[in-house]
Simulated assay, not measured.
Amino acid sequence: MLHDYINATIGFEGLSRVFDKPSKSLMRMFGPKGNPQASNLFAVIQYLQEQEGIHLEVKARKVA
């Protein structure tokens, strides 16, 4: 889902310029079989949140 979001907003070329990483590497990293390091994942999410003016939040849910 993040792959599609990046495509629809900044694009991988734009993200490549921001993070100084090859666009192909970013595409693989956020592709269906990708496995980004937590530092890369959180950096990209933080950047996208700042650019889009949104705040993502994860909440735990109690299971009965």
Rank of each mutant, 00 (worst) to 15 (best):
M1C: 08
L2D: 01
L2M: 12
H3E: 12
H3K: 13
I6M: 09
N7S: 11
T9K: 08
T9P: 00
T9M: 00
G11D: 03
G11V: 04
F12D: 04
F12A: 08
E13R: 14
E13T: 13
E13L: 12
E13K: 13
L15V: 04
S16P: 02
R17H: 12
F19D: 02
F19M: 05
D20A: 15
K21Q: 01
P22S: 15
P22A: 15
P22D: 15
S23L: 00
L26Y: 02
L26W: 03
L26F: 09
R28I: 01
R28S: 04
M29V: 01
M29I: 04
M29D: 06
K33I: 00
G34P: 01
N35W: 04
N35F: 05
N35G: 08
Q37T: 14
S39C: 03
S39H: 12
L41A: 15
F42Q: 10
A43C: 06
V44N: 02
V44W: 00
I45S: 10
I45H: 03
I45T: 15
Q46E: 08
Y47F: 14
L48F: 12
L48D: 10
L48P: 05
E50M: 10
E50D: 15
Q51K: 14
Q51R: 12
Q51T: 10
E52G: 09
E52P: 01
G53Y: 11
I54C: 06
H55W: 00
H55E: 07
H55T: 10
H55S: 06
L56V: 15
E57C: 06
E57I: 09
E57M: 09
E57F: 04
V58H: 08
K59W: 01
K59T: 13
A60Y: 07
R61T: 09
K62M: 10
V63L: 14
A64H: 07
